[in-house]
Design a protein around this nucleic acid. Sequence first.
DNA 1: TCATCTGTAACCATCGTTGTTACGGGGGAG
DNA 2: CTCCCCCGTAACAACGATGGTTACAGATGA
Lengths: 143, 143
Amino acid sequence: MTGNVRFGVAVHVLVMLALEEGARTSTGIAASVNTNPVVIRRILGLLQAAGLVRGHTGAGGGFELARWPENVSLAQVFRAVEADGPAPPAHRPNRKCPVGRHVSAVLASIGTQAERAFLASLARHTLADAVARVRREAGAELS
Amino acid sequence: MTGNVRFGVAVHVLVMLALEEGARTSTGIAASVNTNPVVIRRILGLLQAAGLVRGHTGAGGGFELARWPENVSLAQVFRAVEADGPAPPAHRPNRKCPVGRHVSAVLASIGTQAERAFLASLARHTLADAVARVRREAGAELS
DNA sequence: TCATCTGTAACCATCGTTGTTACGGGGGAG
DNA sequence: CTCCCCCGTAACAACGATGGTTACAGATGA
């Protein structure tokens, strides 16, 4: 796999938790996502730091949502798990080039604006929306 | 350097070409951007394939804009040099998980929408806008 | 003819991400 | 109180993408 798959995994797991479907331990979740339990714990650790999820150690432990799905926007999820924004990072122009000295600021401004548009689009969807769509498409397959 | 710096470099170079400021050969441009001539030729090759730039081989050759800066949107530049969109790629859920089988489609739909918002934001700026902003900030430093 | 410049291929170094193992520590079940 | 069970993390290997670098063929104007 290449690149950051964390956002997709995060939404996948959150939907599972919201549906209270199947396993809620990192091992069980990992099986559903097709990856390693540690990867799941890492991602859920980020979501926990963002206050979207709670983890419980000890026997009978596992993960649960920390908020109602209606109160979780996908933009929050994105920000929680993706350190860098969607825009590519800036380059390091030669300071002796008059253009180079000033393009960066212009580029940053435009990039920030585009990232805001990206996140604003994600913010229009809540976890509850995603759950509803999955439930509709999955139909009777869910418990 | 980390990540894709191509978009930043592309805008930088296009602004230089639009200003007809300094060198227009890959070697000269590379010096201004602080990188290797081949890197510049690679990026300008992409821009050329997108019809934004023309390259001329042979002695006295170099690069020039293929369109007026007013007719080049930054979204076109982004698409020309960044193969992947701004959204992270999808993961590969276990098909045995009822959630996994259906999250992908939902995720793709939401991701596509967010990418469109990102590009739409970039599309609001033309190369001419960027040039004007650089020129304003650079002031008398430019020829 | 010759110097110059693009267009590419090939290769290496580097870095971020994921996958994996290992282990400490918390916490309920019995 | 004693086991398991499960999270939290560190450490490391594997992999892929990217940028940097060298080298060379081909085009082109002087």
